[in-house]
Write a protein that binds this DNA or RNA. Sequence first.
DNA 1: TACATAAGAATAG
DNA 2: CTATTCTTATGTA
Length: 159
Amino acid sequence: MGKIFLAKTNKGLSFAAFVKDHNWLDEITDFFKKRDILLDHNENKFRLEKNLFDNYFKGKKESFHSLPIDFISGTPFQRKVWLETRKIPFGKIGTYKSIAHKLNHRGYRSIGQALSRNPLLIVIPCHRIIGSDGSLTGFGAGLEVKEYLLRLERGEASA
DNA sequence: TACATAAGAATAG
DNA sequence: CTATTCTTATGTA
């Protein structure tokens, strides 16, 4: 399916996304640079994460709830949305509207906006959020990925 | 303050 | 019923 770029602080995982191309990596590294976060290329530190993702892509109900995460970016609102999204159980889906409702918000669109900036793909299952009519509205990493992930959770994955 | 948004609702076909 | 357009609210820079 592709490679996944992971980044973590000493507090927890802070970034996870599919690697697009080299240029994309530059942007990410730049992102961390601006925050004075040094990147240490040490894959050994990601044993746990790797294992979790491995489970997930095997179709196991990995919720990542045990994985410590660290929001290096994000406004209070975004975090609320992310945390709420994270509560969605494996295999289930939610709508922007439902999230908004839980947060006592009327800003459906803002939910999507927050999710679009989700730095923790999969860990925060933004792919489980779809439009109120059941349509896949959008996805940062590409709708293909979203579709794939949803099928994966339905047990129809084909890698 | 102005811009952008992964939505929604409404309308037309 | 589906496709298309328009509207509105909210977050962010």
